[in-house]
């Protein structure tokens, strides 16, 4: 139902995920069904570290959180952070 999910670095220490819902019905549905704790579990971070913005003007739901692995550190696997979106996309399909 979601048209597009984007994830990206917000600087080396943060990740940000934008869920583009594209219309009001979709937005309202995801706004009510997507629980913050479910997203926190998905990224294995504490819910208190997850910033959530529900933006009705844009039909967008945004999550930002400290990067699970700091960008470019030896253990980092995704320099630009764009692949984290796939986790949320596949969560939506379940």
């Amino acid at each position: 139902m979601v048209r597009k999910i984007r994830s990206k670095n917000a600087g080396p220490f943060w990740l940000t995920l934008d869920i583009f819902c594209f219309d009001v019905e979709n937005f309202n549905l995801i706004h009510s069904q997507l629980k913050t704790n479910k997203v926190a579990n998905l990224f294995q971070i504490h819910e208190s570290k997850l910033k959530r913005f529900d933006i009705p003007d844009l039909n967008v739901i945004k999550f930002s959180f400290p990067r699970p692995r700091i960008q470019g550190k030896a253990i980092d696997t995704d320099m630009h952070g764009a692949s984290y979106a796939a986790l949320l996309e596949e969560l939506e399909m379940n």
Partner: peptide, 9 residues
Amino acid sequence: MLYENADPY
């Protein structure tokens, strides 16, 4: 404003 921004506002 969403792009690469932790806070969109």
